[in-house]
Amino acid sequence: MSDIGIKTSAASLNAAKPYNYNKRMEPARVIRWTILFLGGVVMVMPIVFMLSTSFKWPHEIYNLMIIPDDPTIENYTYVLEDGRFYKWFINSLIIATITTISAVIFDSLVGYTLCKFRFRGRMIVFVAILSTLMIPTEMLVIPWYLMARDFGWLNSYWGIMFPGVMTAFGTFLMKQFFESVPDDFLEAARIDGLNEFQIWWTVAMPLVTPAISALAIFVFLGNWTAFIWPLIVTNDPALYTLPVGLTTFSVEQDVEWELIMTGAALATIPTLIVFLVFQRYIIRGVVMTGLKG
């Protein structure tokens, strides 16, 4: 017993060994840290200024101090009491949520089919889908607009959503992740009497949770922050999404930066929630291993 005791305490001492802060830092390490620090500042500063400006009075906004002299929550009160903000917020939420659900389902279905079924022309379909990734959104906006106009989808939720209900990137991502699902799992379910849809839903989908989470984050954020397409396809303020609506603060009543920044600060809340929720699943998915002994 005493031996074990000694070993344990030695191990604990070893584990608890403190980091030597006095160790001289190598120049390369200093440069690395400096670059990372500057990168961090560049990334964080816009967010800091957004939050800072949202607590400033209009006369203070061109003053670049981070902490306002006279902080106010007046901007938040104004934005939250303005009925339009809620409308835009709800529009964005509806559009981002529906497109996320739709993209996750359809991208997964297509990715699963392209990955796990053998049929003539499979590779052609896959390459065709992939090739659409090479076309920039700016080029697609005109055909989308013409299509929306001809189908009568202008000024409608569906008009804003339809380009995003299925994505080539998501299909590619899901297909690649489904490659990691062993065929044995699907065949075992087939023998147990499940149909192909049930196999996809109950066996394959839970095994690619990290990919679903990543896709959900990408699609949600993409649609939540989408600006050009919602701006083009709608001219009814009741259908504006949050990014489009926020610009009206600068058009209608000069450039009210404090209100735009307040709206932007509020708009980041759902994205943070989505990220935090799905990030958990990404980590859980990575931890969930142990397919074979």
Binding site: P182, D184, F185, E187, A188, R190, I191, D192, G193, L194, V203, P206, L207, M288, T289, G290, L291, K292, G293
Partner: peptide, 16 residues
């Protein structure tokens, strides 16, 4: 499923 057979796979095929 209509053959009323059951199969045990090399990699067990149990769902994690």
């Amino acid at each position: 499923k209509e053959r009323n057979i059951a199969m045990v796979f090399q990699n067990y095929a149990i769902y994690p």
